[in-house]
Design a protein around this nucleic acid. Sequence first.
DNA 1: TAAGCGTCGATTGTCGACAGTTTAATCTTG
DNA 2: CAAGATTAAACTGTCGACAATCGACGCTTA
Lengths: 235, 235
Amino acid sequence: MRLMSPPVGLAALADTDLVGQVARVLTQAVINGQLAPGAKVVEAGIARELGISRAPVREAARLLEQQGLLVSHPRRGFFVRKLEARDIDEIYDLRICVECHAALLAAKNLTPANRDALRRQIDVLHETADLEDHARQVEEDYKFHRMVIEIAGSQRLLKVFDDLSSELRMVIGLIGRLYDDPSRIAQTHEALLDVLEQGHADIIAARFDYHIAAAWREVGKLVREIPASTNGAAP
Amino acid sequence: MRLMSPPVGLAALADTDLVGQVARVLTQAVINGQLAPGAKVVEAGIARELGISRAPVREAARLLEQQGLLVSHPRRGFFVRKLEARDIDEIYDLRICVECHAALLAAKNLTPANRDALRRQIDVLHETADLEDHARQVEEDYKFHRMVIEIAGSQRLLKVFDDLSSELRMVIGLIGRLYDDPSRIAQTHEALLDVLEQGHADIIAARFDYHIAAAWREVGKLVREIPASTNGAAP
DNA sequence: TAAGCGTCGATTGTCGACAGTTTAATCTTG
DNA sequence: CAAGATTAAACTGTCGACAATCGACGCTTA
């Protein structure tokens, strides 16, 4: 059963995967705040809303739980995870750990082809800098980082990053605007590509560390201007 | 529905979680080889065997898929993941990345209490060295490493480690014997605790890196004596 | 008025069923 | 006899149903 009204076209490639679709829908709902942190995710409600049964919804919820977007209290249901300042710190700490390592691997695997791909992505960053679409800016930013990890060539590294990303998108979606000076993000990423090309391990690690830590401080600052809430429900 | 016959006592605390139980059963089956790599996991079969319906089995399978123990081919079902040499490399590469980082954090958080806990675990390693129970040795080995990450204090770091661990247990279970000289593993872990206490970042990272890399080489050697198989099924 | 208790609606956990698809087995046919 | 077509069995994806449980509300009782 399709979620959207059949889009006429026969472009039903990787569509056949209900729980995947539900997972995407839920993820999106969490990211854009339709499902606020702490909100209860009522299986029957989602199911009815999507015109499907509860089974696929439950499976999708379990998936998102594993990814850290939802928490489940047995016999009480699934809830949108509340991220506290501590979680943000954990996420960025792990991001630094993982991305610095990935950057080193990526530098080793750097070919003209994927070097150009990165450069093109930086061009995209330049373009989006002018737009007022903050969400888009964040998205293209992530895409660059993700490309680096793809180049590193480890599926597991990529999975960790993707899981962290969806958690982060949640907070960032909540914060709203992220960059004070959008034009600068393209520049900072050029610096990242530079050190990758240069290929000196220490410098690469230091540069990526600095870059991510900067984002960490930025997000941390903005988050602390927002409600601090204890996670989960009382026992 | 309970899996075991009710153990009389009222110690039915965290029992109420069918999918959790199923997940554990399946994990165990994968680790000890009852479910061989590449084997098909038939939902109805598992369900019947456990005397439950397919729904919880499916949810558990999705969970293990997310953890990397199973792969799912839409419309064809779940299969036990086949780990190739490349996967082993990815796992250990990530382990080094994560555990070295965790070790640094752990060193900062090291208190007399958890320092003693680590030491006690090393004692256990000494004791199990005499036994011929290889599985037990591996398990206690992991427990030490896990404790370090617990001390580091990041839930996410711990989750990444746990996921990697279950994948690794799979390979190691397959290999059978892992240590040529069991008496040495206690020693090497003492060295790890030493550098943690000493608290010098570079030395900690280097030592953990070396320790894990050694295991990597060991496992890699043993794995390559075993069938190399392509993962998944043909499209 | 505040704490305790029972009731009722809402929601989860689990089950069995059914249709559509995949896989295995059997039967053709060149 | 081998390759392809055909049929039958097995399995997955999804659904709707039902009992058990949880949380809220209101009522009783100090």
